[in-house]
């Protein structure tokens, strides 16, 4: 069986009220930014970014959103799951001073990236934002890396209040960066893009994926036709800049376009 394994959950860690991290003791040989297709073979298979990976284990971090992820939340260590992958493109591992921008449950793959950047000798700064303070994930894990880490929420009791973009602006006033990375809500990355000027960057994008192997075409992005499951999910600045659908629309399971903002409806 090519590229598919049936693995037992080694550990489940509760990150917050609706986010869990699942650890599998398996040498997946994944690179930061790559994803797996995960299924319980009971109806539902979804892509999940890898939030950590070493030679003896890997982790994915899952938000409870639908039927399938609800079932994942009732799983216990020892339960079997079907895993395909790793699939997709990975982040460029830069040196120098880098800024990682995470939003909501999009943040976990940036933890895996941060570890690799540190190994490469980069100076890693992370900003992590969420709507509410209790929705922030991986705060302790990032802090334990001994890096420059800031988090913020739009409403809550944190030192900072506001969006990740507010923290980015603050970071830009005091630092000059060599490379920017982001993962999270698309509108956050769209807003971030406007602040980046000539800085090189990579974004981790999300689209509805079905086959995961570049055949069905559900995750192609306009107008390039590149497949986020093969040529993505990590896209470089040069590619992101050409995407007319970035921050504009995405395609649902049927392939129908869904616009991020209703006012954009009908706009091509």
């Amino acid at each position: 069986m090519k590229n598919r394994s049936t693995l037992r959950i080694a550990e489940i860690r509760k990150e917050n009220f609706d986010i869990n991290t699942y650890r599998f003791n398996f040498d997946l040989k994944a690179k930061p930014g790559q994803f797996i297709m995960l299924s319980d073979l009971r109806g539902g298979e979804k892509p999940f970014s890898i939030s950590d990976c070493t030679e003896d284990h890997f982790c994915i971090t899952v938000k409870r959103v639908g039927e399938f992820t609800k079932r994942l939340f009732s799983c216990s260590p020892g339960d079997l799951l079907s895993i395909r992958g790793p699939y997709g493109s990975s982040f460029f591992i830069s040196a120098g001073k880098v800024l990682l921008v995470g939003g909501g449950y999009g943040t976990p793959p940036l933890y895996f990236l941060a570890k690799h950047l540190l190994k490469n000798g980069a100076e890693v700064h992370v900003v992590n934002g969420a709507r509410k303070a209790e929705e922030l994930v991986f705060c302790e894990k990032f802090q334990k890396l001994g890096i420059n880490y800031e988090n913020t929420s739009e409403c809550g009791r944190l030192k900072n209040s506001g969006t990740s973009i507010d923290l980015v602006e603050q970071a830009f006033r005091n630092n000059s960066y060599d490379f920017i990375y982001a993962a999270g809500p698309e509108m956050m990355m769209k807003n971030l893009q406007d602040k980046l000027g000539k800085l090189p960057y990579e974004f981790l994008l999300e689209r509805y994926m079905k086959c995961g192997v570049g055949l069905c075409g559900n995750c192609t992005v306009d107008p390039l036709g590149i497949r986020l499951c093969v040529e993505g999910p990590v896209l470089s600045k040069a590619l992101v800049e050409q995407l007319t659908e970035f921050g504009n629309y995405h395609r649902e399971a049927s392939g129908k376009r869904i616009y991020f903002m209703k006012t954009d409806k009908g706009k091509k």
Partner: peptide, 11 residues
């Protein structure tokens, strides 16, 4: 195969 969007056909 790849035929879900204009861009998939185009590439």
């Amino acid at each position: 195969v790849m035929g879900m969007s204009f861009s998939g056909l185009k590439i």
